[in-house]
């Protein structure tokens, strides 16, 4: 099957594989340790694990965009901030 029209590149393929792996790891996590019930964190609204992953990914997208606009195109530090943000979301939200 010719997928050249999709203009794949290695970095974008890695990006999507990482997203897929995150979703698969959520599935494995749920199988190992079921915990899908909503809980209420510091933002005072109910979230499930899936919600927290969504908030992490959406927040990370905006952190990267803000970094790009305000700091520069080197996003490695932004990635570290995203990792920290994800941990905070999963622990406190």
């Amino acid at each position: 099957m010719d997928l050249s029209w999709m203009a794949w590149t290695t970095p974008t393929a890695i990006f999507f594989v990482v997203i897929l792996c995150l979703m698969l790891s959520m599935w494995v996590w749920e199988l190992i340790s079921p915990g899908g019930q909503p809980r209420r964190g510091i933002l005072r609204f109910e979230t499930t694990r899936g919600d927290r992953l969504f908030v992490t990914l959406l927040g990370s997208a905006f952190i990267n965009l803000a970094w790009l606009a305000l700091v520069g195109p080197n996003l490695w530090w932004a990635l570290a901030v995203c990792g920290l943000f994800g941990v905070l979301v999963f622990v406190f939200v």
Binding site: S4, W5, M6, A7, W8, T9, P11, T12, F15, F16, L68, P73, L75
Partner: peptide
Amino acid sequence: MTVVNYSVQDSFGNNEFYWVGLE
């Protein structure tokens, strides 16, 4: 996915793409 792929490349038609990163 295709839009993401296009967003990091420059295109000059005829399915030729050049990596530009986050430009």
